[in-house]
Design a protein around this nucleic acid. Structure first.
Lengths: 162, 162
DNA sequence: ACCAGTTCTATTGTGCGCAATTGAATTGTG
DNA sequence: CACAATTCAATTGCGCACAATAGAACTGGT
């Protein structure tokens, strides 16, 4: 099919890692959309709930650090979760700057209905557990490298200046 | 901590593949944000330009199939690219339903300024070419499995019905 | 106590993603 | 030709992401 040349065009869409990650992420989000419809949660909302189920309570800043999201994303998301009665937000007594997010009874109970989800996701991926572990390792390494990356020290293979 | 079971809690945030993909995707997008600032392109706009640089011209439907995006995303995005003079949109003569997207001179020329980007991205990932190849393979497999996935046949390890 | 600097959250504005709807153009069938 | 079904793109509405800004609350130094 493809043209003989061993080295692909670096600017080809299919050859780029970026698109593979991007496409995989949206495919996963779509899968979760189906699986979470029953719980009436979006995927980012589910991630917030995961973090809260682990912690019980957390400040907006804690959630932002765990999920790598800022308040511009979390504030309205948490407002919707509160409107649904899954969490409660209250200013911390002692430091009125921080908003403490706490699970309600309903929010805590929702965890039971979420329990079958990870198993279904693993099934849908069609990967073995070993493959999943390897993939997670590579992705974590990728995320770390890219996040730590210093823009000013970007390797410039052969470009002197614009 | 978790209940007795040796394997990690399936509902733990850090243990899930979904979050690894999600975090990696956003980290990559952030990297491209920096690299593309010079070209004044967003990451999805860059993907559309990649597809057009490969094809020269394409219908909205072609782009949607290549990038797995629908018209709700592409229409306003293409409008912005056209407003910047990078592409031109015109109804196909012969089939007035399809909108043909064509690169302008400016849009074609922009490719030269994009050429150093893939190299810089590879550098920033901190991965070897072999690791990138393996990662791409796993991600493509993941995307395929998840996309092909039939929601009704979802494996339900032990849940009879809601 | 005062004030400058910092920390933390919320708000605003822009640009995706995607479901659902709309409407024009085309195709298939009688 | 008439007309129902289909195809294609645009629009609408909602929910993220993220940059930039604003504002309240805390901190440390004087």
């Amino acid at each position: 099919m493809g043209e003989a040349v061993p080295g692909r065009d670096p600017l080809s869409l299919d050859g780029q890692l970026c698109f593979a990650v991007y496409a995989a992420s949206r495919a996963m989000t779509g899968l979760y959309r189906d699986l979470l419809a029953d719980l009436d949660l979006t995927y980012p909302q589910y991630l917030v709930m995961l973090a809260l189920w682990e912690r019980g309570t957390a400040s907006v800043g804690d959630l932002g650090e765990a999920l790598r999201l800022d308040s511009g994303t979390l504030s309205p998301l948490l407002r919707r979760l509160e409107a649904r009665g899954l969490v409660r937000r209250r200013r911390d007594t002692g430091d009125e700057r921080v908003v403490r997010v706490t699970l309600t009874q309903t929010g805590t109970a929702l965890r039971e209905r979420a329990r079958p989800i990870p198993g279904r996701v693993l099934c849908a991926t069609g990967l073995t557990e070993d493959e999943v572990a390897g993939l997670r390792g590579l992705l974590d390494q990728l995320t770390e490298s890219v996040a730590t990356h210093d823009p000013t020290s970007v390797g410039r293979p052969s470009t002197p200046e614009r």
